[in-house]
Design a binder for these strands. Structure first.
Length: 571
DNA sequence: CGCCTTTGACCCGCGC
DNA sequence: GCGCGGGTCAAAGGCG
C-alpha cells in the first residue's frame, strides 16, 4: 500500500491515486493486522515525480508515519494528473489485488511498483486483497450514498416546483375570484349605489363603508357594545351589499396563506388592563381573522409563521412628502394622542391613532425633516381592521407592496403578494431611490420618498416593465390589462369616487365591465393621473395606511362607526 | 356638550 | 442598576 501519500479514489473512473496530504483513514485500516503495510511499500520519497518537494510527506522511516494511516482520501479530486496533490504511482509488477479489483470490473489505475522480495508477495497480496475489498465496498457505499443524495435533490426540486405552481395558481385563482365578484357587483348595480352613496345619510361613501362593515358587528359571533350607528335602517340594497361584502370576504380569506397581524402585541399591550385598544383579532377570539382558512397545514409553516410574526408586526412604512400643513391628508381619520421631542430633530414628533375603526391598531407618526422643514415624514405602523375610504384605497397597493417588499425573503408566505398590486411592487422594487429599506432601524422600515420629481418617471417605467413581465407569464385566459384593471378594481371597488378625489382612473378600471384597452393607454392614463394630480401624495400616503394584510383585514374587521368627528387631518 | 389637542407623567426597552 | 429615548396615557383646556 502507499505510504507517505494518501489514497485517492476517482469516483468516476474508480482509479486510485496517491496523494501526499496527511489524512487518517480509519475506516480503511486494520491496525490489528500485523502484516499490512509491511511489504509492497512504494517509496514515494524516492520517486522523482511524486516526491516533488512536499515537506510534510511522512515516510516509513519518519516518526510521523504509521502503518494503517493513509494521509488523505480525496473522493473528488480536481486534478487527475500527477501533481503536487495527486501522484499516480507506476509500478512494474501487477499485484494480485489489482487482479482481484480488475476481476470485479474496477479499473484502479494503480500500477504498483514493489521493491520487496517475491517470496512474501503472495501473502501480502492476500492481505491487501482484503483491504482493497473493503475499500471497494466503501467506495460502492459512497457511490450509493451519492446517488441517494442526487435522488433526494431531484425530489426536493420537484417539491419546490410544486409549491411554486400552487402559489401561482392560487394567485390566479384569487384574481379570478375577485374579478367574478366585481362582475356580480357591477351587474347588480351595487357599486353604483356604494359609489354615489346617500350623502344625506351623513357621509356618502365613507358612511357606506361603515355600514358595510357594520355587518360584521351584527354577526352572532360578534358581541360588541360598540357601534353607535347600528341603528341605521337597513335597506334591501344595503343587505345585498353586505352579502356581497361577505362573499368577497370569504373569497379573499380563502386565498390567504398567512394571516398578518401588524398591530403590536408586545407585553404591554397583551397585559394591558387600562383599556388600551387591542387588536380585534386578539380581543375577539372568535373573530373571522382567527378563523382564516389556511392552505399551509404543515407545522413547519406554522412555526415559521409564528417566528416571523413579531417582525412583521413591527414593520413600518415611512413616507417623505412635501407639505406645509401639520399632516398630510391621507384619507383616514386620525386622532392625536401624543407629541414628543425626538432626539436629533428640533421638530416635535406627533403621534396619531386611526379613529376610523373603534379598535384600529394603526398608528402614525408625523415629523418634519430636520434638514428640510418642508418635508413631512409620516410613518405608518399596523394594519387597518376596517374598510378604507377611496382616498386611502386609491393606491392601496403601494402599502402592501412596500410592506411586502420589506418582508420579502423573510416571510414564506404569498400573502403579501396577494394583497399587493404587483404593479406597485415592481414600481417599488425597481425604483431604489423611490423606496428604500432600512434594516438598521429598530423596526424594519420601508421609506417612500415622494420628494424627488423623477420618481414619477421611474414609476412609469416600472409599470411598463410590469406589463412586459405579465405578458410572458400570464395564462392565455388572463390578459395583462385584465390583471391591471382587476388589481385596481380589487383595490378600490368604489371606483367612481376616484374622480371626486381628483384621480382619474385608467379606462380599464371601470367597475361595470372589464375593458381591455391598449396597455399604453392604460398606463399612460394611470401615470398621467398619478404624476399630474396634486393629491397623489395624499393618495399614496393614504395607501400606506392600509399596510400589510389590508385585504383580509378589511374583510374581517370588527370596528364600528367612527365615534369621533374628523379632525384637521381630513381637511 | 362632546370631541380634540396639549402636555406632563408614566412605562418599557435598550445600552452603558 | 441607571439613564436615556421612544411610545403611550390621561387629565386639563380649547374649540365648534
Amino acid at each position: 500500500m502507499a505510504k507517505g501519500g494518501g489514497l485517492t479514489i476517482d469516483p468516476d473512473s474508480t482509479s486510485f491515486f496517491i496523494t501526499n496530504k496527511p489524512t487518517v483513514l480509519n475506516s480503511y485500516t486494520e491496525p490489528n493486522h500485523p502484516s499490512r503495510f509491511k511489504n509492497d511499500i512504494i517509496d514515494i520519497s524516492t520517486d522523482p515525480i511524486c516526491n516533488s518537494g512536499d515537506e510534510d510527506v511522512p515516510s516509513p522511516a519518519s516518526a510521523n508515519w504509521k502503518p494503517g494511516i493513509v494521509n488523505e482520501m480525496d473522493l473528488f479530486p480536481t486534478d487527475r494528473n500527477c501533481s503536487k496533490e495527486s501522484h499516480r504511482v507506476n509500478v512494474k509488477k501487477e499485484s494480485a489485488q489489482d487482479a482481484v479489483i480488475r476481476s470485479l470490473g474496477l479499473n484502479t489505475g494503480l500500477n504498483l511498483t514493489t521493491n520487496t522480495s517475491s517470496e512474501k508477495s503472495n501473502e501480502d497480496d492476500r492481505t491487501n486483497n482484503t483491504s482493497n475489498k473493503k475499500s471497494f465496498n466503501e467506495l460502492v457505499a459512497l457511490q450509493a450514498e451519492l446517488d441517494r443524495m442526487s435522488v433526494e435533490n431531484e425530489r426536493l426540486k420537484v417539491l419546490l416546483n410544486q409549491v411554486k405552481d400552487n402559489y401561482n395558481s392560487l394567485q390566479i385563482h384569487f384574481a379570478t375570484q375577485m374579478q367574478h365578484q366585481q362582475t356580480r357587483m357591477a351587474k347588480t348595480g351595487i357599486v353604483d349605489e356604494v359609489i354615489n352613496g346617500d350623502k344625506s345619510n351623513g357621509g356618502g361613501l365613507t358612511r357606506q363603508f361603515m355600514d358595510l362593515h357594520r355587518v360584521e358587528k351584527d354577526e352572532p359571533s360578534h358581541t360588541s357594545s360598540e357601534g353607535g350607528l347600528r341603528n341605521c335602517s337597513r335597506s334591501p340594497m344595503k343587505d345585498k351589499v353586505e352579502l356581497e361584502y361577505k362573499k368577497q370576504k370569504i373569497c379573499s380569506s380563502s386565498s390567504e396563506i398567512i394571516q398578518l397581524d401588524l398591530d403590536k402585541s408586545d407585553s404591554r399591550n397583551g397585559n394591558s388592563t387600562t383599556g388600551r385598544e387591542d387588536s380585534p383579532d386578539q380581543a375577539i377570539p372568535g373573530s373571522v381573522l382567527n378563523k382564516t382558512p389556511r392552505f399551509t397545514t404543515s407545522r413547519d409553516a406554522d412555526h415559521q409563521h409564528s417566528e416571523t410574526l413579531p417582525m412583521i408586526r413591527k414593520a413600518r412604512v415611512s413616507v417623505r412628502a412635501r407639505s406645509d400643513g401639520t399632516t398630510i391628508n391621507d384619507g383616514c381619520q386620525w386622532r392625536k394622542y401624543g407629541q414628543k421631542m425626538a432626539k436629533g430633530n428640533p421638530c416635535p414628533r406627533a403621534y396619531y391613532r386611526c379613529t376610523m375603526g373603534a379598535s384600529c391598531p394603526v398608528r402614525k407618526q408625523v415629523q418634519r425633516c430636520a434638514e428640510d422643514r418642508s418635508i413631512l415624514i409620516t410613518t405608518y405602523e399596523g394594519n387597518h381592521n376596517h374598510p378604507l375610504p377611496p382616498a386611502a384605497m386609491a393606491t392601496a397597493s403601494y402599502t402592501s407592496a412596500a410592506a411586502s417588499m420589506l418582508l420579502s425573503g423573510s416571510m414564506p408566505s404569498a400573502d403579501a403578494l396577494m394583497n399587493s398590486n404587483i404593479l406597485a411592487r415592481t414600481a417599488l422594487s425597481s425604483s431604489p431611490s423611490f423606496a428604500t429599506l432600512s434594516a438598521s432601524a429598530p423596526f424594519p422600515t420601508v421609506t417612500l420618498d415622494l420628494t424627488q420629481p423623477h420618481n414619477a418617471s421611474q414609476f412609469q417605467r416600472a409599470v411598463q416593465g410590469q406589463y412586459n413581465m405579465f405578458s410572458s407569464s400570464l395564462p392565455h385566459f388572463m390578459s395583462a390589462p385584465q390583471v391591471f384593471g382587476q388589481a385596481l378594481q380589487n383595490q378600490s371597488k368604489y371606483v367612481g369616487l376616484h374622480s371626486s378625489q381628483g384621480i382619474e382612473l385608467p379606462p380599464f378600471a371601470s367597475s361595470n365591465q372589464i375593458h381591455t384597452p391598449s396597455l399604453s393607454d392604460a398606463i399612460g392614463s394611470a401615470t398621467a393621473a398619478i404624476t399630474a394630480d396634486p393629491n397623489f401624495t395624499a393618495a399614496l400616503v393614504a395607501a400606506i395606511t392600509s399596510i400589510i394584510g389590508n385585504v383580509h383585514s378589511n374583510h374581517s374587521g370588527n370596528s364600528t362607526q367612527p365615534t369621533t368627528r374628523n379632525n384637521n387631518d381630513n381637511n
